[in-house]
Simulated scan of single mutants.
Amino acid sequence: MTDVPARRIALLGGGFSTDDDGLLDDWMLSHARGSRPRVCFVPTAAGDAPGYAEKFLDAFGARDCEPSVLSLFRRESGDAALRDHLLAQDVVYVGGGNTANLLAVWRVHGVDRLLREAYGRGTLLCGISAGANCWAEGSHTDSFGPLTHLPDGLGLLPGSVCPHYDSEPGRRDSYRAAVAGGALPAGWAVEDGVGALFTDGRLDEAVTRVPGARLFRVRAGQGGEPVERALECRRLAV
Score class of each variant (00 low, 15 high):
residue 192 D to R: 03
residue 230 A to L: 08
residue 126 C to P: 02
residue 4 V to A: 14
residue 50 P to L: 15
residue 211 P to W: 13
residue 145 G to Y: 10
residue 121 R to D: 12
residue 80 A to E: 15
residue 10 A to R: 03
residue 90 D to R: 06
residue 113 R to I: 00
residue 135 W to K: 08
residue 237 A to N: 02
residue 28 M to D: 05
residue 77 S to T: 14
residue 229 R to F: 07
residue 67 P to T: 02
residue 12 L to K: 04
residue 193 G to E: 02
residue 2 T to N: 06
residue 41 F to G: 15
residue 177 A to Q: 11
residue 5 P to Y: 14
residue 213 A to W: 06
residue 132 A to R: 07
residue 168 E to G: 00
residue 166 D to S: 07
residue 128 I to W: 08
residue 193 G to K: 01
residue 19 D to P: 00
residue 121 R to E: 14
residue 47 G to N: 07
residue 54 E to L: 14
residue 157 L to R: 10
residue 46 A to T: 14
residue 118 A to H: 09
residue 98 N to M: 01
residue 150 L to C: 03
residue 91 V to L: 03
residue 57 L to G: 00
residue 173 D to G: 10
residue 143 S to G: 07
residue 131 G to F: 09
residue 107 R to E: 15
residue 209 R to F: 03
residue 10 A to N: 06
residue 14 G to I: 05
residue 187 G to W: 12
residue 126 C to L: 13
residue 122 G to H: 14
residue 60 F to C: 06
residue 124 L to K: 08
residue 74 R to A: 13
residue 208 T to R: 05
residue 103 L to P: 08
residue 33 R to Y: 00
residue 122 G to I: 13
residue 107 R to P: 00
residue 202 R to A: 15
residue 27 W to I: 02
residue 98 N to V: 08
residue 199 T to W: 00
residue 212 G to I: 08
residue 201 G to V: 12
residue 181 G to I: 03
residue 101 N to S: 13
residue 118 A to K: 12
residue 137 E to F: 14
residue 22 G to H: 14
residue 108 V to A: 10
residue 124 L to G: 07
residue 55 K to N: 13
residue 71 S to I: 06
residue 229 R to W: 01
residue 209 R to G: 02
residue 223 G to Y: 09
residue 96 G to S: 07
residue 107 R to Y: 04
residue 177 A to T: 09
residue 3 D to I: 15
residue 3 D to N: 12
residue 17 S to T: 12
residue 209 R to T: 11
residue 99 T to V: 09
residue 71 S to P: 07
residue 46 A to F: 02
residue 15 G to T: 14
residue 157 L to P: 13
residue 238 V to H: 09
residue 190 V to M: 11
residue 148 T to K: 03
residue 204 D to M: 01
residue 77 S to M: 12
residue 50 P to E: 15
residue 131 G to T: 10
residue 161 V to G: 07
residue 126 C to S: 15
residue 224 G to Y: 11
residue 204 D to Y: 01
residue 206 A to D: 11
residue 142 D to L: 01
residue 114 L to G: 02
residue 34 G to S: 10
residue 217 R to N: 05
residue 86 L to H: 10
residue 209 R to P: 00
residue 185 P to Q: 09
residue 141 T to E: 04
residue 139 S to P: 00
residue 122 G to T: 13
residue 23 L to H: 05
residue 38 R to M: 06
residue 108 V to M: 08
residue 160 S to L: 07
residue 199 T to K: 00
residue 185 P to E: 08
residue 42 V to Q: 06
residue 133 N to D: 09
residue 133 N to L: 02
residue 136 A to N: 09
residue 28 M to G: 04
residue 130 A to Y: 11
residue 156 L to R: 04
residue 225 E to M: 05
residue 65 C to Y: 05
residue 154 L to Y: 08
residue 27 W to S: 03
residue 18 T to D: 10
residue 21 D to A: 14
residue 140 H to I: 01
residue 57 L to K: 02
residue 59 A to P: 00
residue 23 L to D: 04
residue 24 L to F: 01
residue 186 A to F: 10
residue 18 T to P: 00
residue 36 R to K: 13
residue 213 A to F: 05
residue 60 F to A: 04
residue 23 L to G: 04
residue 61 G to I: 08
residue 43 P to N: 12
residue 104 A to M: 04
residue 192 D to G: 07
